[in-house]
Amino acid sequence: MADKSDLIHIRKVTDLHANWSEQGSGEPGKFSFQLVLDDGAEEAVIRPTAKSAKVLVGEFVAGKSFYYDTSRGVLLLRGLD
């Protein structure tokens, strides 16, 4: 039997919410993406740097579907144009 830590827990991203929050006057803000997984069965939040957030937005626009490995914190992009 496989060790539980060896299992891959992948869920489909069925909705996405992008957020930006101010961190104080003159300070850079923070980005986050809330991933709704399998129609609300689970949620995950990722907090990329501003540079990574820009890249992710491009991937979200270009991709056809997205999956999230909940055990490893890995976003999987499928069908990029």
Score class of each variant (00 low, 15 high):
Asp3Lys: 15
Leu56Cys: 04
Glu42Pro: 02
Asp39Ala: 10
Ser5Gln: 13
Gly24Phe: 04
Thr49Tyr: 04
Ser5Lys: 15
Glu27Pro: 02
Ala62Ser: 13
Thr14Trp: 05
Pro28Ser: 07
Val55Gln: 08
Leu16Ile: 15
Pro28Tyr: 06
Thr49Ser: 15
Ser5Ala: 15
Glu42Arg: 03
Gln34Val: 02
Arg47Pro: 00
Val13Glu: 11
Ala2His: 13
Val36Ile: 15
Gly40Ser: 04
Phe31Thr: 08
Gln23Lys: 12
Lys64Arg: 05
Gln34Tyr: 00
Pro28Cys: 04
Ser21Met: 11
Phe31Ala: 13
Gly40Trp: 02
Gly40Phe: 07
Leu56Asn: 02
Asn19Ile: 02
Arg11Cys: 09
Glu59Met: 08
Ser65Lys: 00
Asn19His: 13
His9Met: 14
Trp20Asn: 12
Ala50Ser: 12
Arg11Tyr: 15
Glu43Tyr: 09
Trp20Met: 14
Ala18Asn: 01
Ala44Cys: 07
Lys12Val: 11
Val57Pro: 00
Gly63Asn: 01
Trp20Tyr: 14
Leu16Asn: 08
Arg11Asn: 10
Pro28Val: 09
Glu27Val: 10
Asp6Glu: 15
His17Glu: 12
Leu37Gly: 07
Glu43Leu: 03
Ser25His: 11
Phe31Trp: 13
Thr14Asn: 06
Lys4Ala: 14
Val45Glu: 11
Val13Asp: 08
Lys4Phe: 07
Ser5Gly: 07
Lys12Gly: 05
Ile8Val: 13
Ser25Met: 10
Asp39Cys: 05
Ile10Cys: 12
Glu27Cys: 07
Ser21Glu: 14
Leu56Lys: 01
Leu37Asp: 10
Ala53Val: 08
Val36Asp: 15
Asp3Ala: 10
Gln23Ser: 11
Phe66His: 03
Asp39Met: 05
Arg11His: 14
Asn19Lys: 12
Val13Arg: 02
Leu56Phe: 04
Ser52Lys: 12
Thr14Gly: 09
Arg11Phe: 13
Gly40Asp: 03
Asp6Gly: 08
Phe31Glu: 14
Asn19Tyr: 10
Ser65Cys: 01
Ile46Lys: 06
Val45Lys: 07
Lys51Asp: 10
Ala2Glu: 13
Ser65Met: 00
Val13Pro: 13
Glu27His: 09
Leu7Ile: 11
Glu43Cys: 05
Ala18Val: 09
His17Leu: 11
